Structures are given as structure tokens and as C-alpha cells.
Amino acid sequence: MRKILVTCLTLALTIGAQGQTETIDTAQFVALYDYECRTQNDEGTPVTDKMQLVVQVGRTVTKSMPRSAYMKTNETIEEEDLIMAEHQETLMHMPTVWTGLPNGQTTVRDRIFPHEFEGIEPTPDIAWTLTDDTVTINGYFCQQATATFRGVTWTVCYTEEIPSSAGPWRLRGLPGLIIKAENEAHTFCLAELRQNHTPITAPEKSPNVQRMTYAKLLKHRSDVFGNRQYAKNPLFHVPNLNGGTLSLGGSIHHMTVINLGSQQFAYADGFPLLTKAHVYQPLEIE
């Protein structure tokens, strides 16, 4: 492995200790999805961003999260892999979603620098239209369905071979596990199914998390990521940043710079930090 050089703070402070969490369910199985987002960079050039998503399917709660969050507590990982995964996931804006918590509702945790947010709402029903079309994906015989959810239209393939109504992110509610879901900008595709009975944990209890209605959280996300300035200056919305430069002081209290060979990765107050981003492609627009 390439040598990792950490400045300002130790790596443990940026990606290490997690707050206390409560186990609320146990996964009956774990689904690993490949997620792609087709967008543009800050110069308008088409790019396809890629990451992985882990979905723990329990008896009462389903938890969908970026793979790095799952890696920290359920996998043996190299620090380099974790750092690279965290920064790629920050580029793609994937929140952690608990479906069924609390009491059948949906809870979403989202990191929008420099804060972490939590929104809760009743779990919405998705009005799927089932079709007669079938296809085999990764060895699973699938049927197709379509729906418009929160202003975005999806075509999905689900399999009754896995009797679960779960799927990636917030997609759910079919008579079988969602194997693939896609639209013009986004694609989720099942990469691996594991019979891992791992604990499903509740959101970490932290006084620093800003809690609000999910509608308000969705608006804040759109106001930040959907702003025209965001791709060229992801810190445009952060006050007192000395003209938007990376520095200690103002809204940033601790900085960490990690060198992996010729690549450099920054953390600010424990958040992976971007100096440039890609054009936001929302999963929800209403």
C-alpha cells in the first residue's frame, strides 16, 4: 500500500470513533448495489460517477447507506479504501435512510457541509405500475415496473425469487426485491446478496445533528447542491471562509490533509471536503 501522510490531525480523529449507537433490528440479508450517476463536471463535460450502496433488510427496519458507513463497523478495510470511498460518496450526495424508523416512518440523515441533518416523515407509498415485461439480471428472473416518485420517473426490475419489498435508497414497495432501478441520470443495480445477519443500528445520538421536517431538509439540499455555483465552488454557502479558501478559522475548526501517493484528500471537522464538484442530479425534486 502507498504511504499515507496525515497532517494537522490524526486520521483517527477524522474517520474513526463513532458515537454510541443502538441496535434496533437485525439484517435478514444484506444487498450491495452499484450506483451510477450521469452528470457533468464544473466545465460542463459529461462524467459518470460511481459508488456502492449497502442495504440491510431487517424484519421491521431497512437501512440504506453509502458503503463506507457499513465498512466502518462490518468489514475489514484498508484506510486508503475508506478514504477514497468517503470522498467519492461525498461527490454523489447519498444519504443514509432508515425505512420503518421510528414506528413505521422514514428517517434520513444527510451530511451537507458544515452540518449533519436529520429529517423524518411518514413513509410514502410509491404508486408502481406493474408491466408484463420480464428480463434476467445477474441470474435473477425479474419483472418490470414503473413509477414517478417525488417528481422523478423510475423503471425498475424486481424479482419474486427474493420475497422482500426492499430496494436501494428509498425505492421500495414491490412484491420482490428491486434488482435494478434506473432513469436518465441514475442507475442502481444489485451487485451482491449476502446472508449476513448484521446489526441494524439507529442514527447516532449527537447534539450536533440539526433536526427538521424532511420537506425542509429536502429544500436545503436543493438550495445548496442545486445552486449554479456549487460545481465550481462547493463551499459557496459556508460563511466566513476567507473567500472560500481552505483554512482554519471561520466555519472550519480542524483541517486534515491526507496524501495517498500523488492524490490529496482533505477533511474539515471530520467531513470529506471537496474543492470542486459535479452538477447535482437530484433523486427527488418535490
Rank of each mutant, 00 (worst) to 15 (best):
T134W: 09
G139D: 10
R221C: 10
A266M: 09
E160M: 12
T48Q: 10
H220C: 03
P114F: 02
S164L: 05
G151H: 02
T134E: 15
Q144E: 08
P272V: 05
D223H: 14
A31R: 01
G226Q: 14
T131R: 00
A266G: 00
P168Q: 13
T245I: 04
Y214I: 06
R170D: 05
T23N: 04
P114T: 03
L9C: 13
E43S: 07
Y158T: 03
Q195S: 06
T198S: 10
A277Y: 08
L193F: 05
L174T: 03
Y230H: 15
F149H: 13
K63V: 00
N74W: 01
I252E: 10
F29I: 03
T10E: 13
G243W: 08
V54A: 10
T48A: 08
V6D: 12
T7G: 13
I137H: 13
K63E: 09
P234M: 03
N74S: 11
T60Y: 15
F141N: 15
T73P: 02
G167W: 09
G16W: 06
V257C: 11
S68G: 04
V6H: 12
L241K: 09
F265W: 11
D133N: 09
V6G: 07
R150F: 12
M65C: 12
G139M: 05
T23E: 15
W128C: 08
P124F: 00
S222H: 15
A31H: 00
R38W: 07
G167S: 14
D133V: 06
I258E: 05
Q264T: 13
S68I: 02
A69F: 11
W169Y: 14
G249I: 07
A147N: 14
D133F: 02
E182G: 02
V47Y: 01
E184W: 00
Q195M: 04
G167Q: 07
T45L: 06
N259T: 09
Q229H: 11
T146C: 14
P207V: 00
P207C: 06
T96D: 03
L283A: 06
R2M: 12
L273Q: 13
C189T: 04
C37Y: 06
F113C: 01
L190P: 02
R221D: 09
Y33E: 15
T21R: 11
Y267W: 02
T245L: 10
E182M: 04
F29Q: 07
V57C: 04
K219F: 03
A215S: 09
G243R: 13
D125G: 10
T7V: 07
E75C: 01
S206Q: 06
D269M: 14
T76H: 08
N233K: 10
P282Q: 03
E22D: 02
W128V: 04
V108D: 04
L11D: 04
Q143M: 12
F29M: 05
E284M: 08
S68L: 03
D132Y: 05
F149M: 07
L260M: 13
R59F: 10
V108R: 02
P282A: 04
Y33T: 07
Y280A: 08
F188K: 03
M51S: 11
E36I: 05
V54H: 02
T106W: 01
M65K: 01
M212I: 00
D42F: 07
T21A: 10
A69P: 03
V54T: 06
G100T: 08
K180R: 15
P122K: 12
E192C: 03
K72A: 08
P114C: 09
T7L: 13
H197Y: 15
T107N: 01
L9Q: 14
L217R: 13
Q195W: 00
